[in-house]
Design a protein around this nucleic acid. Structure first.
Lengths: 201, 201
DNA sequence: GCTTCGTTCGAACGCTCGTCCGAACGGTCT
DNA sequence: AGACCGTTCGGACGAGCGTTCGAACGAAGC
């Protein structure tokens, strides 16, 4: 598939750093042949990103349907995200890196997908910690995304822990942390109040 | 300062996407004037990255000296990282994005700095959870880095929570998570064993 | 056999890229 | 005054960029 090969090239050299001729060499399709399939280099990038989000959103809706428990929903979500990431590292690197390179019309369509995705995550989180009024949901959401998305910089499938364990571990960090005892202000150890730092004031 | 203005340009357009003429326009220095200060575009990028790491490493060593408590060391580390990030969003975006664009000789020097930095973090973490043999330190370390580094995609100084609170919140997530009760396998709630998922087998 | 259609390509277009050259500037020394 | 020096610049260089055009292909329909 041309999209996949192109994604590899863009992931390695960056979108601007890779030339159409690089893509041509990698895919075996002539330069003008590429322009038969895509009407511009921008559209090629858009198609990669759009197809990627389409797939991940599709799978997410499928796997989430019928799952009601908030924590379980989050687990499904993280598992899905990490599995897709690990299976499509090149595409996801392109997705993370070249988010704002596209001209407005293309970009807004990808942004819409991205918004739907992160709102799904936000909703799952909100369902999980509804009791904490004034929770800084934004920080929590993006911290989770940060953990997950950053793996394209270090994770090597086959050498690092498998995706299932990665999911477990990140879920654990996010829900329970390293689980050190929390020091109370009187110097003794204590269990944290769930909402201790989650209030906004 | 030329380095700072250049970083802004590179952050906005990407290193390959930005031309020397863009940098010239942003800095007010003529194109050939720039080549009086830097012998190539690559060197300009290198100087930005190198100077950035130099500063952050310098401050880190300063702030860490005399701090012995492992948890406190981690707090200093996270605080430093986030503060520097928030104060130099453009440079840090360039640092994150264009890490592997440089030719080998430049890149290896930046990689050395990066290694020193992440080993400092790794050591702090190891000191914090020494009791857990077979801890997957790698996952923990990069999850923390992910949370922190990802902020360049969403954090807006002045609009989001201040850096101090951000530090607090990320520390809390990383050490204690959202603090939901952990379900034991018999269906009752229970307190997690600190090392529960941190063993490797 | 001839035409049409979807597909593929080599070669060229105009343009922008990173880099370099030679001249010009304002000081400071003799 | 003249010579030198660090600094700055306009303008040019070849290379490579994204994109386009017209020709060539094999298969399908008449």
């Amino acid at each position: 598939m041309i999209l996949r090969e192109s994604a590899l090239v863009f992931a390695e050299k960056g979108f601007d750093g890779a030339s159409i001729r690089d893509v041509s060499a990698a895919t075996g399709v002539s330069v003008s042949g590429l322009y038969y399939y895509f009407k511009s280099k921008d559209e090629l990038l858009f198609l990669i990103q759009h197809h990627c989000f389409e797939t991940i959103l599709h799978r997410l809706r499928e796997d989430l349907s019928g799952v009601d428990d908030p924590e379980e929903r989050l687990r499904v979500l993280v598992g899905n995200h990490l599995r897709f990431f690990a299976d499509n590292m090149a595409e996801m690197k392109v997705l993370s890196h070249e988010a704002d390179v596209l001209p407005d019309d293309y970009r807004s369509r990808v942004t819409d997908q991205k918004r739907e995705y992160s709102e799904t995550v936000g909703a799952a989180l909100e369902a999980l910690v509804p009791e904490a009024e004034g929770v800084d949901l934004r920080v929590a959401t993006f911290s989770l995304f940060g953990m997950m998305n950053w793996i394209y910089t270090w994770y090597r499938p086959g050498k690092d822990v498998p995706v299932d364990r990665l999911t477990e571990q990140m879920m654990h960090i996010f829900l329970h942390g390293l689980q050190l005892p929390i020091r109370a202000s009187d110097g003794q150890t204590a269990v944290a109040e769930p909402t201790s730092i989650w209030r906004n004031s």
